[in-house]
Design a protein around this nucleic acid. Structure first.
Length: 497
RNA sequence: GCAGCUGUAGCUCAGUUGGUUAGAGCGUCGGAUUGUGGCUCCGAAGGUCCCCCGUUCGAGCCGGGGCAGCUGUACCA
């Protein structure tokens, strides 16, 4: 006994049920529709790439799987499971540079893998749905991506006001770094710490960020996080910047200009934000796409505008009753250097990625994804096991299938009661019951299981219920398909969300 | 990685100052009902009490060390 294998799922991975698959399929089709409306074309790349194509370093020999799942090929070259869809796109574009139209507008959906600690809404395998414009230097491309992101949220059923597309610019962040004396390679580490601190604003608040900018912060669990070690004046400047998001676009831009007027690069970034803001406003998206200086995005490869799609509502956790914030469900930005790693000339690019798995988790909790039952097949019960009877049952399912109605003959070993339970559990719309009496008479019994279930609520006596055979009709064998179709059609009408 | 909490049946959990045979609810299977889903009743199966070491006449319970899970936090190219 004790040498039995333990059936268990690796942590951070999930099995997907029929209902999950149905909901995910609907989501993906919705997103695909929006992306195609914007003129993006699909492409698919493999789940595995050479490790050096994904990032700039090979796995550490001691810990080759830190962050990314990696392994060595026969020829000892390092391969990795992709951890996003952007780096593979850059590889694909560079490899097919000659024959692709430019600007190249592409979308793709697929699984990505991260070897990290999983958490609620965070998995080690999850699905992303990306759209990118490669070869377009204008921030008009960035503005378009942001507006498409907003359209996608609404197509998925998220109300206007329940989400926001927040936009910032890495150049502005760089300008702030200059302003507090953190320019240059010597301060790269500190810059990173400052950016991470800013990124946590919505989680730990202004005071938390202030602590992280200074000496450090003791979080509620008792863990201490070392800070960036900035002086009070520098910290105040950074906080002022983070807080520069005002009610109107003009005010926000003016506040930003005031803070980084000494930095040409920062001002360039503000100008880009101003143009994005103007384009967005002109298109009528000003209430959904907002300039927000606290957006950072972790990835190093961003070079200009960065964006984040955030859900702004709270959901109460069904178990604990605690409010759950889902926060970011998508993000992206401009990565002008990524494709250039493969080509001699620089290639500007910008894109957006939706975290489908996390978004789905959020929508499910919000009740926006009808986790509705998946309709099962009509089940033909097997009452007799003589060759003639089996051939007859097989003939019935074949007729139903030819008519386009999913059907199956019960193939288990159990008796009739268990077969009825099986049909119930499969969510079958109907069961077909034929014993020797029916067969001799050229009849079939057809039971409407959904109707029967409704009727069963009012029944108190089991013997009576069985005797009455509710929701059951006897029809001629020749009318089997027609009778089943009537039930299936009625069930489908009533069952759809 | 760091911190806190938790490990007992398939699931959710109870288990007295350390005491002899470790329980409940739900679920599963069977019967009451040769051929009818639900309810009810009856019955059955199902356990390395996370692992190892120690204390003790005796450990699910106490001590030490591991491991795993959850939550927070850090990292997330």
């Amino acid at each position: 006994m004790s040498d039995l294998l333990n059936a268990r799922l690796p942590r951070g991975f999930v099995d997907r049920t029929p209902a999950d698959l149905k909901a995910a399929h609907r989501m993906l089709e919705t997103i695909r529709h929006v992306y195609e409306l914007y003129g993006f074309e699909p492409v698919e790349t493999p789940l595995i790439e050479y490790t050096d194509a994904l990032g700039k370093f090979l796995p550490d020999q001691d810990r080759p799987n830190e962050g990314v799942f990696s392994f060595q090929d026969d020829d000892e070259q390092w391969l990795s499971l992709r951890y996003d869809l952007t780096a593979p796109l850059a590889r694909y574009f560079a490899e097919n540079n000659e024959r692709l139209p430019k600007p190249y507008r592409s979308y793709r959906a697929g699984w990505v893998f991260r070897n990290e600690k999983p958490g609620p809404g965070r998995f080690r395998q999850f699905m992303q749905f990306d759209a990118d414009t490669v070869g377009a230097p204008s921030v008009a491309a960035d503005a378009e991506i942001c507006m498409m992101a907003a359209d996608t949220m609404e197509a998925l059923g998220i109300q206007r006001g329940d989400y926001v597309i927040r936009v910032n610019n890495r150049k502005v962040l760089d300008g702030v770094m200059e302003a507090i004396g953190l320019a240059g390679d010597a301060h790269a580490g500190t810059r990173l710490t400052v950016l991470r601190a800013i990124d946590k604003l919505d989680k730990i608040g202004v005071e938390g960020v202030r602590d992280l900018l200074g000496k450090g912060r003791l979080d509620p669990s008792g863990d201490f996080t070392k800070g960036a070690g900035l002086g009070d004046a520098e910290a105040a400047l950074v906080l002022g910047f983070v807080d520069a998001g005002k009610t109107t676009l003009g005010e926000t831009l003016a506040a930003l200009r005031g803070l980084i007027e000494a930095s040409p690069k920062g001002l360039e970034g503000v100008d880009e934000l101003a143009l994005i803001g103007a384009l967005v406003d002109a298109a009528g998206y000003g209430d959904r796409v907002k300039i927000d200086p606290s957006v950072v995005r972790g990835l190093e490869y961003y070079t200009g505008p960065v964006f984040e799609a955030e859900l702004t509502f709270e959901v109460l956790d069904t178990d604990t009753g605690q409010p759950v914030r889902f926060g970011s469900v998508g993000g992206g930005g401009r990565y002008d250097g990524l494709v250039g790693r493969f080509l001699k000339e620089p290639v500007p690019a910008t894109g957006f990625s939706i975290g489908v798995s996390r978004l789905m988790a959020a929508l499910t909790r919000l009740g926006k994804l009808g986790a509705g039952e998946v309709a099962g097949p009509v089940v033909v019960l097997v009452m007799d096991k003589t060759p003639e009877a089996l051939a007859d049952y097989q003939g019935m399912v074949a007729e139903l299938r030819r008519a386009g109605i999913p059907a199956e003959m019960y193939l288990g070993a159990s008796g009739m009661k268990a077969q009825m339970k099986y049909a119930d559990r499969r969510n079958a719309p109907a069961a077909v019951i034929v014993g020797s009496n029916e067969r001799a008479a050229g009849k079939v019994q057809i039971k409407d299981l959904a109707l029967g279930k409704a009727l069963s609520a009012g029944i108190t006596d089991n013997a009576q219920w069985r005797a009455e055979r509710p929701a059951q009709q006897e029809v001629d064998r020749a009318d089997l398909v027609a009778a089943i179709r009537a039930i299936v059609d009625a069930t489908a009408e009533g069952g759809l969300p």
